Simulated assay, not measured.
Amino acid sequence: MKKPILNVKNLNKDFQVKSKKTFFGKPSSVRVLSDISFELDEGETLSIVGESGSGKTTLGRCIVKGVSASSGDVVYHSESGESVDFLKLKGKGAKKFRKDIQMIFQDPYSSLSPRMSVYDIISEPLVANFKLNKSEIDAKVTDIAEKTGLNASYLKRYPHAFSGGQRQRIAIARALITQPRLIVCDEAVSALDVSIQAQIINLLKDLQEQYRITYIFISHDLSIVQNISDRVAVMHLGRIVEQASTDSLFGSPKHPYTEALMSAVPQPDPEQKKSRIILEGEVPNPANPPSGCHFHPRCAYRTDKCVQESPALREVGDRHYVACHYAEELNLKGVHDDAVNIS
């Protein structure tokens, strides 16, 4: 039986934006995450996808407390059976569970201090979270370097001496050194060449199998998402509009926005023609979101109801959730389906 490791409940994030009209104008509040809720099972990979500006990275950083959420809960279920709201932990309580949830950032170069050696970068979380002597730290750093494909003889070098793929391996080693149970991967391979991407993805999958790590994988590359994910959540303008297993989402999407994203996935056969859905208009401004369904200005299936009423995220199948008024009526095309019909 699967055990939940994380429950995100009604998570909201507001940013204060200064008015451009007057110098002394009061800042206004812009909601970039709205009522985000999902459950994460131990050992699985949940991918978060969506266009730039959809709130993917902000969500990941709120979960690890890199950014303070405005409201909501992130309930972490520890290996010992304790359930704690990770966002409300402070002091010793925060330090106790901090090592269990780590993050791999998008840019492996800017996330690594150029003034620290690779050894110091990887060992820093150990020094901060555990009372270990020098020989114990040396053994753990060498071990994790080897498991992530780093040459132990290069540990005294600095990040500038490594390639992009090697730097990302350093970042992965740093995240793994405390033996976390959950890792948030924020566009962890987007800055790498395709061949290096494959190596890092395979490394993450191997480490997951070996250590039973749970991943939240934030990405805009749906081909990678399809390869690595157990479940996928689609975000649009700070909200989850669809969430399902990878097979269900890619094979039978229920939201028009998901269908448009699926149309961008390249076909394995280059001779097989595939129609691309081009969304008209611009991505809505979070500071001035549209009425009703936030996707309706760009949706080919919109009706007056979509303009007036905001759809709630509801279950339409086995753990398949969607925020669309007409999810049961639309027959949308997935990655391997070229027919689009409305029943």
Rank of each mutant, 00 (worst) to 15 (best):
K156P: 02
K92Q: 15
H160S: 13
C306W: 04
H336K: 13
A128K: 11
I122V: 10
I196H: 12
H77C: 12
D230R: 06
A260H: 03
F86H: 03
F97T: 02
K88A: 14
A145R: 03
Q199W: 10
P27K: 14
N7M: 12
V307W: 09
V307K: 15
R174T: 09
P256L: 02
E42T: 03
T57K: 06
S190V: 00
K134W: 04
K134R: 13
C306F: 01
A191T: 13
T214Y: 05
E271F: 14
S245R: 08
R298L: 08
D269C: 09
P297D: 11
I218N: 01
R239G: 03
I144M: 07
P286H: 11
S275D: 12
I200V: 15
E124H: 06
I48Q: 04
R174F: 03
K9M: 08
R31E: 11
S219N: 05
Q197C: 08
L261T: 00
T246M: 08
I200R: 10
I196K: 13
L182I: 11
P256E: 09
L126M: 07
Y76E: 12
Q199T: 10
V127T: 15
L313G: 01
I144K: 02
A312K: 15
M103R: 02
L33Y: 06
V75L: 14
E124G: 09
K95Q: 13
S163P: 09
S252R: 13
S52M: 10
C299T: 02
D221K: 00
R239Y: 04
R157G: 12
A139P: 09
H255G: 07
K20F: 15
I48Y: 01
E82Y: 07
N331C: 05
G281M: 08
C62Y: 03
D85K: 07
S343A: 05
D193K: 09
S52L: 03
N341C: 11
R181N: 11
Y321A: 04
I216N: 00
L237M: 13
N227M: 08
K26H: 07
S52F: 02
R298C: 05
H160P: 00
P4F: 06
I224Y: 07
Q243D: 05
F15E: 02
Q267V: 13
I278P: 03
T214S: 11
D193Y: 05
D269H: 10
T258E: 03
A175R: 01
P268E: 09
